[in-house]
Design a protein around this nucleic acid. Structure first.
Lengths: 335, 335
DNA sequence: CTGAAAGCGCTTACAG
DNA sequence: CTGAAAGCGCTTACAG
């Protein structure tokens, strides 16, 4: 099992050149099938392991794609980031690349420090998973490497981004509430915190507009500050019959609050969330929410980054991947 | 910003050899300070990035350490794995290594398939984070690469493992309950599922023994099957005054169950958890539990793997890192 | 079908 | 203090 076996070692035993070994092991033209077989067998027997570092150097490619996740997201939506990373890594592997997670420390984000992997040329492209601050985005764009945004976008329109269709998801969810007879519908979320929250709000708003429902400002409630930290909020004096929450976690908090005020969910007040994360089934009642299509998002992100690594001029723009409404018990039909 | 600048390019501009560039950039002996400065400046100006792949090849080392996490853990204890990975990666970086996560698909675990990174010689050592099945452990041991177990161990005693001090943590927690006046104390957990659960049970048991409290088998309740999937369980006919749970998540489930039976926590029944994960503060009342010392565990694991990469014969055995009891509101003093 | 030569970007060991 | 030579393990382009 000792494994410093090289192609040369195999070549020597077979009295051929290492070029022939290379060809055989890579299933290239120019080696007789017989010899090819023999080489492969012997390679197995000798415990040969292909040294991709050598190939990397020859090609001038690392075959690594770095997935950058700003630190502050790693506590939050829990398994989402790990799950989507898993998907990404798996698809990358099929294409011969490695995925490498880099959790971006908040300090490095503030000091505009790029990951070491960049400075050491061990990466061919970046997937930015989760929105860092603007200056960091600009930095990432300035280094002129293949780059794809995942799960957020920037108003800057020369970037490629894969996002959940937040707008459409919230729109559909609100339509559903209205079909269930609701007319007084609130929205929970800081509209200026992230593009996701803003777009979800706009989807909600579009649904109201289409149904001729007035947008009541008292029903729009901020849940976090602009850095994304949750803040205390009050319920409106008069409770609407339903709330659209920008995420499941805040739906969870809202339901606790509503309950403490002496109301029941969904009897007195319906609630819908977004994300279908752990909070969706942790909350009583379980939340009606939107499930993000993780695999589809990963697949797109990988496709984009791979094509950009092959052809630096490739562009894709913004792609929104549709989610799926999961109906559970947090909405009550009213008349 | 174009970056195919090599040492040779810098050398040419300065009319020196690339050996000199290498020495200067690596702060080695044998270059005048003057020239060193000049080289560094020019390197910066030209946007030079060190190519570590070349060094890797020269050294015959990848400078990568792969952290393997069995897939089934990635859904579970949520942020724990990502957090400890973050710690690991950071400490590895200080030592000049890269951390690479490999989420081990259950299929690969069953089929005893090693990660591609191994076959392609892109890794110098493995940290196994979370317990895979025995055959996979044996496979990992057979390939003769530096290997450290993290957060679990195996009865096999020739392995190096870093774990939380489950035994001591549960022991202390139970002592605390007894100090609060409890004598009837149950334990929730399948004793045959993982070494952690078993050790926590034994710590609990030791505390009972030391206080001359009889172990009542009716109070030992299994919470999951042997593959770790949660199962339904019933409360004992007569409720003890307190429960030690093998983890916060099951403490959460237990409290719901107790409440549904018409009892209050902690008034009628005290509960303690383990892990201090998201469930600890999600549950009402917030849980008294043990916080795992993530950084200390990461630090040890990295220290071990690095020393083993330097010296294959180094061994460390099993190291248990003490956790810390977090006192919250789920325990009531009784007399 | 097979292989000698050159090169990927760096470093080490040696000579000057 | 400085550099020519050789080598890490592979592949490409070319010649036979």
């Amino acid at each position: 099992m000792k494994s410093n076996v090289t192609m040369k070692d195999i070549a020597k035993k077979l009295n051929v050149s290492s070029v022939t070994i290379s060809k055989a092991l890579n299933d290239k033209e120019g080696v007789s099938d017989e010899l090819k077989e023999k080489i492969k067998d012997l390679a197995d027997k000798m415990g040969y392991r292909y040294n991709t570092l050598a190939k990397s150097m020859k090609d001038g490619k690392s075959y690594n794609v770095c997935v950058i996740i700003p630190e502050r997201y790693t506590g939050m939506t829990q398994s989402f980031y790990l799950k989507i990373y898993q998907s990404i890594a798996q698809i990358l592997e099929e294409k011969g690349y490695y995925g490498i997670i880099h959790i971006l420390p908040s300090d490095d984000e503030d000091n505009l420090k790029l990951p070491r992997i960049y400075h050491e040329r061990r990466v061919d492209g970046f997937i930015l998973l989760g929105q860092p601050k603007r200056e960091y985005i600009e930095l990432m764009q300035s280094i002129d490497m293949p780059l794809v945004f995942l799960d957020f976008y920037d108003e800057n329109n020369n970037v490629d981004a894969v996002i959940t269709d937040n707008f459409y998801g919230a729109y559909e969810l609100t339509n559903y509430l209205i079909r269930q007879g609701h007319r007084e519908i609130g929205y929970i979320g800081n509209l200026f915190s992230t593009s996701s929250i803003q777009d979800r709000f706009l989807g909600y708003y579009k649904s109201l507009l289409e149904h001729n429902i007035h947008l009541n400002q008292d029903y729009i409630i901020s849940d976090r500050d602009e850095r994304g930290v949750f803040i205390e909020f009050d319920l409106p004096k008069q409770l609407p019959s339903a709330f659209v929450c920008n995420c499941d976690q805040v739906a969870h908090l809202l339901i606790e609050k509503v309950r403490k005020s002496g109301y029941e969910v969904p009897k007195d007040c319906s609630v819908v969330g977004f994300d279908n994360d752990i909070y969706a089934t942790l909350t009583t009642p379980n939340l009606t929410t939107v499930e993000v299509h993780i695999e589809e998002m990963a697949k797109n992100a990988v496709k984009f980054i791979c094509e950009k690594m092959d052809d630096a001029s490739a562009t894709f723009g913004r792609v929104a991947v549709k989610g799926k409404i999961i109906y559970r018990d947090s909405v009550q039909k009213i008349k």
